[in-house]
């Protein structure tokens, strides 16, 4: 086996690993958004997808990319997501806070599903 082949296999293995782990994070974030009881807590679950999940998948795709231009474009998308996602999350949280939506700070007990519904904050 030549060095180029070994490099090829290593690249594929890295790509597969990064994309699989990223997929796990994205799916976990999505289920978290479904399962968590309150708007402010759901925000954190969405953050899991936006940061590590997205970046890992983009990293895996960069490893697979054939030429420098594809890799550069993917890196640009990754940078853009990295810079805009916290701003968007903060904007949503800040808007909810300024609109008077109170975070539910009680200890969420799994026994009472009635606690799960958050208060209506729409005005």
């Amino acid at each position: 086996m030549s060095a180029a082949e070994i490099f090829q296999y290593a690249r594929d293995a890295f790509s597969i690993g990064a994309m699989a782990v990223g997929l796990v994070f994205v799916i976990a974030g999505a289920t978290g958004v479904m399962r968590l009881p309150d708007f402010y807590t759901r925000m954190h679950a969405a953050g899991v997808t936006d940061t590590l999940g997205a970046e890992l998948i983009i990293l895996g795709l960069i490893a697979q990319a054939g030429d420098w231009q594809t890799a550069a474009k993917l890196a640009l998308v990754g940078l853009l997501l990295f810079l805009t996602s916290p701003t968007a999350t903060h904007a949503i949280a800040n808007a909810a806070h300024r609109a008077g939506q109170k975070p539910d700070l009680s200890h969420f007990k799994p026994k009472h599903p009635a606690d799960a519904g958050s208060s209506e904050g729409q005005k």
């Binding site: 708007f39 999350t89 949503i92 519904g117 904050g121």
Partner: peptide
């Protein structure tokens, strides 16, 4: 159920 949940979901 709230508006902000929807904005968050749309962004995500």
């Amino acid at each position: 159920p709230t508006l902000y949940d929807r904005v968050l979901a749309a962004n995500s």
